[in-house]
Each structure stands twice: as structure tokens, then as C-alpha cells.
């Protein structure tokens, strides 16, 4: 249903380009026996995101609509939902770019529904936690070095850098066909994070992650559909991470994996010796 209008929105100054129908799946497991679909007409201005549209519905049409959001700028990963049968962040999706007259909204698949568009991401966080996604060291206690640092070269950083951009939005898990069929499969997000720490030169925890990441429902269950990488809003390539993880396991199984050279702990900056030839700092201009 298209309604082209040229009027000023109340309280706004932007021109309404058309009215788009938001077709939203509604479900509350506590009160509704089955999901239903509600439709709302939303006046769309240039740059209006799906998240803005949901705010419009909540403020003007149905205050009981539930969804999750926080930052509104593609950083927190809270507003992931199934938009026109594709997992996307609502804040990162402009309605006009969808080029449709109806926007179909559903909660992310492969997760239980808490209410309406709110998926239960606790499974994702549990799986994420199970791969110990932090620096593990045996030779030095991280707790004893709360402000300490490790030496790491730029090349070592770049090996895993892209995988650190994950915001745990769950879109990759929603897109993964293996997660859809095998609920015990770890999934692209935790597997990629396991690989991210495994190849970090500061980390020595591969052995503690291997039972989860390389177990019977770990990396070897990936079919390499690549849907996870396709939908990631941050440009992370989980499918690549999983394939590299498999390759690493293959090389390790043949006994050919080189021993990891662990990054050394850097001494405190205050105890660092000044390099020869370093010029003096300029005199302070403000006292």
C-alpha cells in the first residue's frame, strides 16, 4: 500500500515520501496461544530506519509493541530482527532502501521468543561464554596485572583484528542453517570468537577451548553456507574464521602445528628505558 504525500510530520520538518505498512509478528508466550501478525501504517521520511518506524508505532499506534534496542547506531547489537526475511539490525536498515511497500518484521529465527520482536539471546551468550572468550595465560596471572600489557606486533594484531568487531547481535546465529537444525551446534559467533583468541599471540587457552570449539558439535559441523558472513552488520567474516579454525585443527591433528610463541609481558611504562636519540619533550606552555 503506497500513499505518496507531501506534508509535514507533526513536530518534524521532514517531508513524508510515502506510507509503508509495517507487518509485525506479535507473540507473548505467556498470554497468546499462537503468534499473530499486526499491520501498522508508518509515514516514511528520507533516512527513516526500521527502528524509527517501530518508535513511531509505539508512540502513536500501539504502545504494547515490544522490541529490544539501545544505542541506535549499530554498535550495541540489540535490535537484530528478521526484516523482510533477512536478519538485520533495525537501526542500521533504512525503510526506503528496502524498496518495498510492506516491511515484514519477525523476531530473529533460531532463538526462542520472549515477546513480539524480542528474541531470547541467552543461548548465544551461554555458548559464547563456553569458549572462554578472554585471554587465558598459564605462566602469568592476568589478575595480578590489571593494568599490565603484553607485547604484540601489528602483524600479530591484524591476524585476528576483524573478529574483534563482533557485537554479539546474533544475526549470524539466526542466519546459520546448521544452528537451525542442530541446537547443540555451537554456531558461528562462538566458534569465531574461539578462533579469535586461539590465534591471539597473548593467549594460551586453546586447550581449554578445544573440547567446545572442536568437539562433536563444534567447527566440523559447519557446512560453509556462508550466511553468517553475508548478514554480519560489522563486516566480520565468521565463515572464514570457522574454516581457518578447521585448517588449524587439521594441521594440529597431523602434528604439524608450530608451537605458539607467547607474547611477553611488557614492563610498566615508568620503568622503560629511554631510547638513545629521543628528543626532549617541549617545554610546557601552560603551568
Amino acid at each position: 500500500m503506497i500513499e505518496t504525500r507531501s506534508r509535514k510530520q507533526s513536530g518534524g520538518s521532514e517531508e513524508v515520501i510515502k506510507t509503508v505498512q509495517f507487518s509485525v509478528l506479535r507473540y507473548d508466550p505467556k498470554t497468546l496461544p499462537a503468534p499473530r501478525v499486526d499491520s501498522f501504517n508508518v509515514p516514511v521520511t528520507k533516512g527513516l530506519t526500521v527502528l524509527d518506524g517501530l518508535h513511531y508505532i509505539k508512540e502513536n499506534l500501539d504502545s504494547s509493541l515490544a522490541w529490544r534496542y539501545s544505542c541506535r547506531m549499530g554498535v550495541c547489537g540489540s535490535c537484530g530482527m528478521f526484516i523482510n526475511s533477512y536478519p538485520r539490525l533495525a537501526c542500521n536498515t533504512q525503510v526506503l532502501e528496502l524498496k518495498t511497500d510492506t516491511v515484514h518484521l519477525k523476531p530473529l529465527p533460531n532463538f526462542d521468543i520472549i515477546k513480539d520482536l524480542v528474541p531470547d539471546l541467552s543461548v548465544l551468550f551461554e555458548k559464547h561464554r563456553s569458549v572462554r572468550p578472554f585471554i587465558v595465560r598459564r605462566d602469568v596471572s592476568i589478575d595480578e596485572l590489571p593494568s599490565g600489557e603484553f607485547f604484540q606486533s601489528v602483524e600479530e594484531l591484524e591476524r585476528y583484528l576483524q573478529f574483534t568487531y563482533c557485537i554479539k547481535c546474533g544475526l549470524c546465529m539466526a542466519a546459520c542453517p546448521t544452528v537451525a537444525t542442530d541446537r547443540r551446534y555451537l554456531g558461528p559467533q562462538p566458534l569465531t570468537q574461539a578462533y579469535r583468541y586461539d590465534i591471539d599471540s597473548r593467549d594460551d587457552g586453546s586447550d581449554e577451548r578445544k573440547e567446545e570449539a572442536l568437539g562433536s558439535h563444534g567447527a566440523f559441523r559447519c557446512h560453509f553456507a556462508g550466511a553468517c558472513s553475508e548478514v554480519c552488520p560489522k563486516g566480520v567474516d565468521p565463515a572464514l574464521g570457522i574454516q581457518l579454525s578447521k585448517r588449524r585443527a587439521f594441521v594440529a591433528s597431523l602434528g604439524l602445528l608450530p608451537k605458539k610463541r607467547l607474547a611477553a609481558v611488557a614492563p610498566p611504562v615508568t620503568s622503560a628505558k629511554r631510547r638513545e636519540g629521543t628528543p626532549d619533550a617541549p617545554e610546557r606552555t601552560v603551568r
Partner: peptide
């Protein structure tokens, strides 16, 4: 780094 599953999978590839 080696697990039972990674060994089985390596044999599968070989």
C-alpha cells in the same frame, strides 16, 4: 589442540 573429533575429521579429509 587435538580432539577426538578433529582426528576423525582429519581422517575423513585424508
Amino acid at each position: 589442540m587435538r580432539t577426538r573429533e578433529s582426528t576423525l575429521w582429519t581422517w575423513h579429509l585424508l
